[in-house]
């Protein structure tokens, strides 16, 4: 008997499709992330949040920079942009200002958003640009093999800090809140339900909203820092995460071996966004 190589519709698989699959680009899976990585869970929370937000998916645009998290946009069946390293935020601001009807979400990593792109995030927060930024903080440059990042905790081992990191790390939530963000939250990827609820809030918020999410990165961070398996890092999250809503994010530093303080730190009332101000001056200039 000869077996035809012709493709047939795989109805069994079709039937097994997950209800959220309509937001994913099936033909791009499996994803590039390592086993034990938390980005899959974060992406899962994200697509659930998009669905739950009720926003017309036609109007949702996701912009990423470069890095492990930067690949997230590429699995979404939405308008997606994978830009240059560090420049997702100004690219996103261009999209939003040029078409204020769009819901623009930046989904990228800590190195991309806070090292090479650090200047852009503080200015986006200062301007109250009407975008949501989701930052996955794995404490390291994963895609390039585990080098030191500005988020690497003091004393941690990386491939470019072979004697232990000698630099203090950025407290991302504190930095962004100080620069003017109106919504700031931090979760680990283990807080899946809370993370998802927070994503819905952030996406629906008018103005600059920010979520830091901490996924396990066993391959490039954990391996050198006693968390060689993803599950071990998740266990650490389970035992050491404390929820503190509304605290000053300045008090929520992330240090090696310390408790991880998570929660919704900032949730301010809506105030006019950059888009609102631009619309106002357009109206003014038009009447003259």
């Amino acid at each position: 008997m000869t077996i035809s190589e012709e493709k047939v519709d795989d109805t069994i698989l079709e039937a097994k499709r997950h209800p959220m699959d309509y937001l994913l680009r099936w033909d791009r899976l499996p994803h590039v992330w390592c086993s034990g990585c938390g980005l899959g869970s974060v992406l899962s929370c994200f697509i659930h949040a998009i669905a739950e937000s009720g926003i017309d998916t036609k109007k949702i645009v996701v912009v990423s920079g470069i890095g492990c998290t930067g690949r997230a946009s590429g699995y979404l069946d939405l308008d997606v942009f994978h830009t240059t390293h560090g420049r997702a935020i100004p690219f996103a601001i261009g999209l939003k200002l040029a078409n204020p009807e769009l819901k623009v979400i930046v989904f990228s990593g800590d190195g991309d958003l806070f090292a090479i792109g650090g200047n852009h995030i503080i200015h986006a927060a200062r301007r109250n640009a009407d975008i949501t930024v989701i930052c996955s903080n794995n404490f390291i440059y994963g895609m390039t093999g585990g080098q030191l990042a500005p988020t690497t905790p003091m004393g941690a081992w990386t491939s470019t800090s072979p004697y232990g990191n000698v630099e203090p790390n950025f407290n991302l939530c504190h930095l962004v809140a100080s620069a003017g963000a109106i919504y700031v939250a931090r979760w680990t990827s283990l807080n899946a339900r809370r993370l998802q609820a927070s994503m819905v809030e952030a996406i629906k918020k008018k103005g600059f909203s920010f979520i830091e999410v901490i996924p396990p990165c066993p391959t490039t961070f954990g391996r050198r820092n006693d968390y060689e398996e993803g599950i071990k890092m998740l266990e650490f999250f389970r035992e050491n995460t404390i929820i503190r809503h509304g605290i000053d994010p300045g008090d929520a530093e992330l240090n090696l071996g310390n408790k991880i303080v998570v929660g919704k730190f900032v949730d301010k009332e809506d105030k006019p966004t950059l888009s609102d101000h631009i619309a106002r001056i357009q109206l003014f200039a038009k009447r003259r």
């Binding site: 996103a92 852009h120 038009k286």
Partner: peptide, 26 residues
């Protein structure tokens, strides 16, 4: 603004060009 357009002064030239790419895709 007189013709219904958008002007934005960015934080540097890298942001400037990134933002006009975004605007073009919008």
């Amino acid at each position: 603004p007189q013709v219904g357009g958008v002007f934005i002064q960015m934080e540097d030239e890298i942001a400037s060009i990134a933002t006009i790419l975004g605007a073009s895709w919008a």
